[in-house]
Amino acid sequence: MSGKITLIIDGQEIEAEIGQTILDAADAAGVYIPRLCAMKGLSPHGSCRVCTVHVNGRPQAACTQPVAPGMSIENETPELKAHRVSVIDMLFVEGNHYCMFCEKSGNCELQAVAYRLGILAPQHDYMFPCRGVDASHPEVFIDGNRCILCGRCVRASQELDNKNVFQFVGRGIHKRLTFNAPNNLSQTDLAGIDKAVDSCPVGAILRKGTAFSVPIGQRLYDNEPIGSEIESGRRTNDRQV
């Protein structure tokens, strides 16, 4: 089924195509809904819950919920902002996110969303996990303590690279990223040019030899907040992979 419908986001009427998700429709209309696990070109995952909006009063993940006629969507409300702040805050304290020396700083979506939401310090106690690093691969470095379990690398490897390098193990607070190999990343078929490497929104999966090569002031989010591209109609916020 295809065709155009209208729906309302924060009182503004927008046009959407049947089959789109709320997130896609909002992007096309220049309305930014914060997100982390969602990425253009990948199937929706609905795991980070940062994009939660109220659809006719009920919370829904904008990245997985298809549009439907008559939807009235709330995106920018104090309640939803508080919810997003809480989710982002928990992602920060569950990992070791030291922005001051992380090479992803300035290009990091977690940091950028936090700045956009005005988060200056965490509300919860740090958990200081010790998940370790994997430096075995000649071209890729993994810092497990920065992984936010968004699953973008898992999906990118499967859907775009036609591989199956990354997977999750464990449940709940014990869930973590692992590799499809007995010991370390170098035993997988991951290549440095794989799109899975680019898909990481934080500093967990890094391409060796590229750190700090972009000077401060020229990094992705140095000059305007994340989502500005969507709001200005440039539509380049989501990295195309």
């Binding site: 020396f101 090479e103 690093v133 430096a135 470095f141 890094l206 060796k208 030899g209 750190a211 700090f212």
Partner: peptide, 9 residues
Amino acid sequence: GRPFWEVPV
């Protein structure tokens, strides 16, 4: 244990 390229920062 940290990567060498991170050290100057």
